[in-house]
Computed example of a mutant assay.
Amino acid sequence: MAFIVGMDGGGTKTAVIVTHDDQEEPVRSFTAGPINYNGGDAGAIAAAFGEIFKQIRSCCTSLAEVNHVCIGAAGVSNPAVARFLEQQVRDNGYSGPLTITGDQETALYGAQNAMQGIILIAGTGSICFGVNEKGERHRTGGFGHLIDDEGSGYYIGRELLSVLVQTEDGRMADTMIPELVYKQLGLGTVQEVIGFVYDKNTTKKDIAALAPVMTAACGLGDAQALKLAEQCAAGLFELVVPVIERLKLYESKVAIAGSVLQKSRFVREALERKLARSYPQTQLIMPVHNAAYGAVLLGKSKMSNG
């Protein structure tokens, strides 16, 4: 019996699906630690790969039965990242066909059940990716939290913290955001918050984890939170426009992924309104499959084309 393995290497965890190469239903689905090498710990990533291959081995007699491993991960446009991930796979005893690609590709394949259409991802970071009928591709965003990631969880978290300090020093008023941020962080003063923000152990994921505060404040009618949701939607709209225009995907459905779009109706509805005004034939849809299953589909397509 031959197997296909698909991995979605997210920032906080790695989703893995193992299937038979001639069947659609997963043999096993599980999660392991993150394998994102950009800003990740090499030792922790090695441990995650060890756990992943331990689970894979429990599905088959030997790794020789695995016909293809496909990994979708962030940062693989950097050759050093791709080489590092490949080395981890080989160090765990797998010597067969291997595909390592950007997580936007596997997300698109899973979301649209084909390598065609548009995927918009807004989680810790943000990115939009599309492929048209001619196979032409275009990507916007995804260049990291220091210079990009508009409309992402990190963007929202940073803006919430900005509101907090501006409210505390008198530049802003009449918002419940500081109270909600303090509560989520378990802190009580602006000095403690600054300590948290600039602590060397605080990561972009910790900042992004504040994003649900915006949604909660929006639900309570907070004007500043509602304004932030609109700003977030505007940033995501700007990601989608060049993909639609360059690929002429004026009637393509836009699959949405990531916690910001899937869990905050305020951002999603604001984005829908913007799309409706400029691209009335376009609509947002939930993914058909997740990105790990998209990696499986991509792996199968590589086999059939190879």
Rank of each mutant, 00 (worst) to 15 (best):
V213Y: 14
T31I: 05
I100M: 09
L161S: 09
D22Y: 02
I256P: 02
L85H: 10
V254T: 04
Y154M: 09
S304D: 03
D169R: 00
G235Q: 08
L275W: 08
L249N: 04
F30E: 02
A44D: 08
L146Q: 03
P26Q: 12
L185K: 02
A32V: 05
K204I: 03
I4Y: 08
Q112A: 10
A47G: 12
I100Q: 09
G142N: 07
R273S: 14
N132I: 05
L247F: 04
N201W: 00
G186D: 02
T282C: 13
N132P: 02
E51V: 11
L146A: 03
A229S: 15
T19S: 15
S278G: 10
F237V: 08
D91S: 15
N201D: 11
R137M: 06
A15D: 07
G9P: 05
G258Y: 12
I285Q: 06
P26D: 10
K13F: 01
Y182G: 01
M172I: 04
R246S: 05
Q184N: 08
L261D: 02
A257L: 01
I45S: 15
G40T: 09
A292C: 02
S162C: 05
S29A: 08
A82E: 01
N305A: 15
R57N: 05
V240S: 03
A15M: 06
V213R: 09
E179M: 11
Q281A: 13
I45P: 14
E25M: 11
C60W: 00
G75L: 12
I35W: 02
G50E: 04
A64V: 02
R158P: 03
L164W: 06
V296Q: 07
D22R: 06
I127P: 06
I244C: 14
P97H: 02
E150I: 07
E251W: 11
T61F: 09
P242H: 07
E159G: 01
P97V: 08
G125L: 11
K302V: 11
S162E: 05
M1H: 12
D206S: 15
L187G: 09
D41V: 15
Y198C: 11
E230D: 09
M214S: 04
S95L: 05
G157P: 02
L161C: 10
P280N: 07
K13G: 11
T124S: 12
G219K: 13
E105V: 13
L98E: 01
V131W: 14
C59M: 00
I207D: 10
T99K: 06
L271W: 12
T19V: 15
A64L: 01
H289S: 08
E179V: 10
G75Y: 14
H138A: 11
K183Y: 05
G186T: 01
M176K: 06
I118R: 03
